[in-house]
Design a binder for these strands. Structure first.
Lengths: 240, 240
DNA sequence: ACGCGGTATACTGTACGCAGTCGACTGGAG
DNA sequence: CTCCAGTCGACTGCGTACAGTATACCGCGT
C-alpha cells in the first residue's frame, strides 16, 4: 500500500530559490568552475546568482548532505576535495550496490526495461565511437541509473545514484581508457538481464565495476585525484 | 582589550547553533516526541529551543539530507513517514552493506578489534537477559557500527551508519522477538572475524541480517510501520 | 443542506543588518 | 632574520523583518 499517492497531483508551484541555487552550484562544481578544496564565499555566490545569502546558505547545507561540499564551522563551505583513498572506497561501494542492483534487475526483467537499456547502450556505444567522451560518460551514468531503478528497490537506487554522482569526476579518464570494451560488457549485462539470469547479471556487473575500478587505480598518479583549487586569494589588496 | 582573559572564561560556542539544533530535533524524532508525518513548524521549534528560525531552518536542511525529514516546497518540513515497502528495502540494503563490511572486517582482523567486539557482545547479551531492551538495541547498533569501521572502508561505514539509523525504529520489536538468538549469531560472527575467515563472516552476517529482516516482516501489521502523527492542529484559536 | 468563491491567518521563503570570529598582515623585540 | 603579539579586514552565524503563499474558515448562492 503506497501512500505516496496522496501528494500526487500538484500544480505548478513556484520552486524555492534554494532549489535552483542548489542546481546552479552543483553545475558549477561538476563542470569544474568551482574547484575541489575551493572556499565557497556565500556573498560571492549570492552576487553571482543574483540572490541573497540565505538561499545560498540553505543550498550549501543540502549540498553538504550529499557530500559535494564540506561545512567547517566558523569557516564556511568548501568544495569537497576527494582523496585517492576515498575514490577507491567509493568505487568499491558503487560496485557492491550496482552488483546487487543487476541481480535484482534480472529477477524483475521486463521487455520494456531491456528495450530501454539497449537504446541507451546503443547511444553510448555510438558516442564512444565518435569520440564524444562526455556523451559516453552521460550514457554510462544513465544506463547504470536505469539498472538500479529496475532493481525495484528505491533505497538501493537512491544510494547508488548518490554514490555514482560522487565518482563522476573519475569517469572521464576511465571512459577514455577503456573505450569500447566497457560497452561490450554493458551489452552482455543486458543480455543476462533480459534472460532473467540473475547470477550471471550480478557476476558481469561485479567484473565490470571491478574493471572500472582497476582502470582508475592504474591511471591515477601519486597526487590528488583532482587538482585542488589554488591558494586562497584573500586579502586582495595587491591591486596596483 | 582584555580579550585574552575574557575569551578564556567565555562560554564559547565551539559549534554553531545549527549543530545543537540538529541534535536536538533528531533526539525529538528518535524518542518519538515528534511523530512521523508531523508538520515541523519552524517558529515552534525555534521557541522550544530558544533560538531564532534561521538555525532551525538550516538544521532541517541537514536532517532532510539524511532522510529524517521531508521538505515540501511551500509547505515546510515533515517528519519522514516510512512505509513498509521502504522499511523492507532499507533492511535489505543494510544487509548488503553489512555483509560486505563483515567480509572486509575478517580480512582486516586485529586482536584489539575482536576484543572490543566481544566486550560489546557481552554487554548486549547481558542487557538482553536482564530484559533491558533499549540497552540491547543500543549494543546491537554499536556492534554493527564497529564491524563496519573494522572494514576499513570509511565510505561503506558511513553509508551503513546512515541506513542503520533510519531503520532504528523497527528494531525494538525485533529485538524483543529474536532475543538471545541474535546474540548467539553475533558471537559466531566474531569468531569468524577473529579467525580471518572472510567467507564465513560474510555468510553469517548475511544470514543474521536476513533473519532480522524476516522477523520484521513477520511481525509487521497491515498498517504503517510507525503510527503517524494525528490530524494537523492548525487554527488553534480554541485557546482562551 | 451542499458546493463555491472570498477572506483571514499562519506559515514559509527571502532579504537585510549586526555581532562574533577566523585568518592574514604588520610592526616590534630578541 | 625569526618569532611573537597586536591589529585589521573579511567572512560566517544569527537575529529580525517583510513579502508571498498555502490552508482553514465563512458567507453567499444554489
Amino acid at each position: 500500500m503506497l501512500r505516496t499517492e496522496l501528494s500526487a497531483q500538484r500544480i505548478a508551484r513556484p520552486v524555492p530559490l534554494r532549489e535552483s541555487v542548489f542546481e546552479a552550484i552543483l553545475e558549477l562544481i561538476i563542470t569544474g568552475s568551482l574547484r575541489p578544496g575551493q572556499h565557497l564565499v556565500e556573498s560571492e555566490l549570492a552576487d553571482l546568482l543574483g540572490v541573497s545569502r540565505q538561499p545560498v546558505r540553505e543550498a550549501l547545507q543540502l549540498l553538504s548532505g550529499e557530500g559535494w561540499v564540506d561545512l567547517r564551522p566558523g569557516q564556511g563551505a568548501f568544495v569537497h576535495l576527494p582523496t585517492h583513498e576515498e575514490a577507491d572506497q567509493l568505487l568499491a561501494v558503487r560496485g557492491l550496490l550496482e552488483t546487487e542492483s543487476a541481480r535484482l534487475a534480472a529477477l524483475n526483467t521486463t521487455p520494456e526495461g531491456t528495450a530501454r537499456l539497449r537504446d541507451i547502450c546503443a547511444r553510448g556505444a555510438a558516442a564512444n565511437e565518435s569520440g564524444d567522451i562526455d556523451g559516453a560518460v552521460a550514457a554510462n551514468a544513465e544506463l547504470h541509473a536505469y539498472v538500479t531503478e529496475m532493481s525495484g528497490n528505491k533505497v538501493l537506487a537512491e544510494l547508488a545514484a548518490q554514490v555514482s554522482r560522487r565518482v563522476r569526476w573519475y569517469y572521464t579518464p576511465v571512459a577514455r581508457h577503456r573505450g569500447a570494451k566497457s560497452w561490450e560488457e554493458h551489452a552482455a549485462l543486458i543480455d543476462a538481464i533480459e534472460a532473467g539470469d540473475s547470477p550471471r547479471a550480478a557476476e558481469i556487473m561485479r567484473e565490470h565495476t571491478e574493471h572500472t575500478r582497476r582502470s582508475y587505480l592504474e591511471q591515477r598518479t601519486d597526487e590528488a585525484p583532482v587538482e585542488p583549487a589554488p591558494a586562497r586569494r584573500r586579502r586582495t589588496r595587491s591591486a596596483t
